[in-house]
Amino acid sequence: MHLTHELELFPDHKVTQMLFKEVKNAAELRQCAVEGKINGALINPTMLVNPFQVLVAANKAVNSQNNGKMKTRSLYSEIIFNLSPTNNISEAFKRFGCSDGDDSVLVVFIHNEDESQLLADLTARVSGRQVPVEEVSSLTDHAKVKKLYKVTQEEEKSGTLLDAVVCRMAAKDVM
């Protein structure tokens, strides 16, 4: 159900994503992340089109960390920042971070060892139902995504929404 991808550019970094629906304790989970008890990024899945979007954000975060060019204070806040089309950090958290009342959450970890312990720890904390990460596409709020990333109609005719989103994420430093 989870998805683990080893970053090709950073072979000692793996990215693991888990998706939960019917979450009842989002506020508590957020508190755990603040306190460092959950060492991962908690993301609002309605702003995600596809798990690939998270991989793009995670790869860029690890690269920025390596180059000493992070814009935020941790690898996990950097992932959330990278998802956003703008350079406004608080806006990125508001849109892409998990909020207290959310009933679904996507969790991202970056690790170098086997993920089984991470999975077990997180599953024990979440009161909710884990579903395959690919189901994130069924939670997407298309209207909100299109508006936030300013996707044009012409663009939608020639490419997918995921293409549009990924291009803006990759290009945001120079826009």
Partner: peptide
């Protein structure tokens, strides 16, 4: 990178940019 994005916005088919270092 800028030109690719500008073309995409106008509906011209260009390869998606995944990452820039």
């Amino acid at each position: 990178v800028r030109s690719v994005l500008r073309c995409r916005r106008a509906g011209i088919s260009v390869p998606v940019v995944y990452f820039v270092d």
